[in-house]
């Protein structure tokens, strides 16, 4: 088995890399794939909290790299999705603790155990970024429709292109009503500026904060509208051509009203 190695990166911090990693990973696990999430944000460990497994951590990525334990011993299995597990970052170590070569070795080993390995990248474009992308064969670039996030994403797109890593975009925290009134760039605008292909657009939704508070991936609730968004992203990663629906298409009721009025 040699699974796909996908780095989730953004340049700017706080745009939703960890949220994306957890929810896209959980959506794929739910669809029956074996998924491993790797937190490479050394010193700023977070993925364990968002996934809700923080109490069960025994070993971490740096200990694996240093040969203090087997990679299998450090993996934490999710209790809700049996094919989902994660490898935590070290919390009390230097950012430079893992070299590019060491990261590649660990990711290669994990890829033998899973269909998908997601590498949650730290913010920035320095050492942590370079080692996070070293083991990756594909990339998801997460951005929000804001100028500073897009500029940083552009830097990352340039670096990934130079490293010959194919990438697709997730535009996160889109607010359809603001796009409609011209107060926010549209998903198309963002893709055009970054000259990159879209993997998915995720609306800005308070429920993300609520589910993150609990450490529950949003895809647990199948009927949640964000669960549907992440499921579509998962299917696109599987290779299915899932059509992109713009958020600003009116909902069913208002569409019926328009037809009614027109008739």
């Amino acid at each position: 088995m040699s699974g796909r190695r996908i780095v989730v990166t953004s340049g700017k911090g706080g745009v939703g890399k960890t949220t994306t990693t957890v929810n896209v990973g959980a959506a794929l696990a739910k669809r029956g794939h074996k998924v491993i999430l790797v937190d490479t944000d050394i010193g700023l460990r977070n993925l364990d909290l968002v996934l809700g497994v923080e109490k069960r951590i025994v070993f971490d990525l740096v200990e694996v790299v240093e040969g203090r334990c087997q990679v299998r011993q450090a993996l934490i299995k999710d209790k809700r999705f049996e094919s989902l597990s994660m490898l935590p970052a070290a919390q009390t170590r230097e950012k430079e603790a893992v070299s590019e070569a060491q990261m590649t070795t660990v990711i290669d080993e994990l890829a033998e155990m899973a269909d998908f390995v997601f590498i949650d990248c730290p913010a920035g474009i320095e050492h942590g970024f370079r080692s996070a992308i070293a083991g990756a064969k594909e990339a998801i670039v997460v951005t929000t429709p804001e100028v500073s996030a897009i500029r940083d994403a552009d830097r990352v797109v340039g670096k990934l292109t130079a490293a010959k890593i194919p990438l697709r975009l997730i535009v996160n925290r889109v607010r359809p009503e603001m796009v409609k009134s011209g107060d926010m760039m549209s998903v198309d605008d963002v893709c055009e500026i970054l000259a990159s292909e879209l993997l998915g657009a995720v609306p800005d939704d308070e429920e993300i904060i609520d589910t993150t508070n609990r450490g529950e991936p949003i895809v647990l609730d199948e009927l949640n509208k964000l669960a549907i968004v992440y499921d579509k992203i998962a299917r696109r990663l599987e290779g299915e051509l899932v059509p992109f629906t713009t958020f600003d298409t009116p909902n069913f009721l208002s569409r019926m009203l328009t037809i009614f009025k027109a008739g």
């Binding site: 804001e146 100028v147 897009i150 500029r151 796009v179 009134s181 011209g182 107060d183 926010m184 760039m185 549209s186 605008d189 500026i193």
Partner: peptide, 12 residues
């Protein structure tokens, strides 16, 4: 112009 247009132009 709407701020999204300004944002796009500034980014370009």
């Amino acid at each position: 112009p709407p701020s999204s247009t300004t944002a796009k132009e500034r980014l370009r």
